[in-house]
Simulated scan of single mutants.
Amino acid sequence: MSVQTKHIIAIPMGDAAGIGPEITVKALNNPEIYEVCSPLVIGHAKVLEIAMDFSGISLKVNEINEPSDGKYEYGTIDVISLDNLDVESLEIGKVQAQCGKAAYEYIETAVQLALDGKVSALATTPINKESLKAANVPFIGHTEILAALTNSDDPLTMFEVRNMRIFFLTRHLSLKDAIAAMTKERIYDYLVRCDKALQRLGVENPKIAVAALNPHGGENGLFGREEIDEIIPGIQMAVEKGINAVGPVPADSVFHQALHGKYDAVLSLYHDQGHIAAKMTDFERTISITNGLPFLRTSVDHGTAFDIAGKGIAVSISMEECIKVAARYAGQFRAPQKA
């Protein structure tokens, strides 16, 4: 495959004080990455060199101005380097305003490249909420930043690990509040959105299983009525609209079945239900995909790890998988249509 036929995947470097630069250079030290895509780092050249130094990696940094200028050859890291950090005062492993501001600017630049059609997808590294706050960046994380920069409404998160895909009906809510949010209307709405998201990734007529809330799916009301009153009616509403949805399937078996190909995706009802299933399957290869943006975005599912930053011991498997997943879907991704 020639360079011209490979998709350019933009990699915002993340928080310079975290493990983002380290896992980036380690991932790009794997020749397999260059076999599937053309990786382009958006970051700071000197910080990447520092990360290579303490990681024992020797790659050439090639500073460019446009994605079309990249070499995209193993042994060379192509980077659009922003002069937005005082490297002399950089303290690895600590919250710093300049790192939060710089991390935001890396994302901002990568987003513009994607909107301009100069890169095919984003594979993002960790950013830090405290650093963003210290820099007065008015967002708490990637999803909020990406939604604002692209004027996208409520992007949808999907996990992928091996061949299992998981969506989340609710995420950062207490279990009590999550149960209250499990209405038939919400379930119907999410099944419609999940169906569209999968089709944008190239999965035609996807079969989506809805995980049950209660043990054994509630046993016809013996262990709770949520399945009877809300979950089943929500699924039926979606089926009537042509969505290939089934369930509720007991949560102790649905993820195993999806992993072995029975379903194209599972709609998890609350945060830990899906997170535990994904991370027990393969913690380091659990990748987050943000649907509903004008471009494809994948992300590692871990944080900046300030406690180990700068020590050269961060594992890059998740970053490598993040880039590979972006490359795999880039060719078949279809942007959502604006109403």
Rank of each mutant, 00 (worst) to 15 (best):
R328T: 05
K196W: 00
H256N: 08
A327S: 14
N136T: 05
G292L: 07
G93H: 08
T286E: 09
I179G: 11
E73Q: 15
V203C: 08
L173D: 04
L222T: 08
D229N: 15
K184F: 01
Q236D: 12
A114L: 12
A103W: 06
G43V: 10
D195R: 14
G217E: 08
V239P: 00
V47F: 06
I11H: 03
E63R: 15
E240T: 02
G75M: 12
L175A: 03
I308P: 08
L48G: 03
K262M: 13
K184V: 01
T5V: 03
H216M: 06
L213H: 03
L201P: 01
Y190I: 13
L267Q: 10
V61I: 15
S38I: 04
V210G: 08
F295H: 01
E88Y: 09
H302Y: 02
S2V: 06
G303E: 03
S316H: 15
Q98M: 12
E130Q: 12
E88R: 13
D229K: 14
H260F: 15
F168N: 08
G234P: 12
V119K: 08
Y34N: 07
I243M: 06
G93P: 11
I228E: 14
E35W: 02
E130K: 12
L201R: 01
E226V: 14
L122A: 05
M319C: 10
L198M: 15
L48M: 11
A114M: 10
L175M: 11
Y104K: 03
F333H: 01
R162K: 14
G75E: 07
E66G: 00
V111G: 05
A238E: 05
A211P: 12
S288K: 05
L269W: 11
A148Y: 12
A209C: 11
P21N: 04
G100H: 08
V119C: 09
P67I: 11
P233E: 10
D86L: 07
L115R: 06
G310Q: 09
F223A: 03
N136G: 00
Y104W: 10
L156R: 09
A110I: 02
A45R: 12
L48I: 06
D78K: 12
L259H: 13
G292W: 02
I8R: 15
K207G: 01
R162S: 12
L28N: 10
H172E: 13
N84H: 05
A309D: 06
T298F: 10
V210W: 07
V87C: 07
K6Q: 14
C322A: 11
V210H: 06
C322S: 15
I9D: 06
A16V: 04
Y74P: 10
A51T: 06
I11P: 02
R297A: 01
E108V: 00
T109V: 04
H271Q: 07
P31F: 05
L113V: 06
L175V: 15
E144D: 13
A148Q: 11
D153N: 11
F223Q: 05
Q257V: 00
P67W: 10
I232N: 07
L198K: 01
I8K: 14
L132K: 05
T298M: 01
G141P: 00
F255Q: 13
Q96W: 04
H275V: 15
Q199G: 02
I179D: 01
Q98R: 04
E88K: 14
G292T: 06
I287M: 10
F255R: 13
I8V: 15
Q273N: 10
V249S: 07
I243C: 05
H142I: 02
P21R: 09
I64F: 07
F306G: 01
P31V: 05
L259N: 09
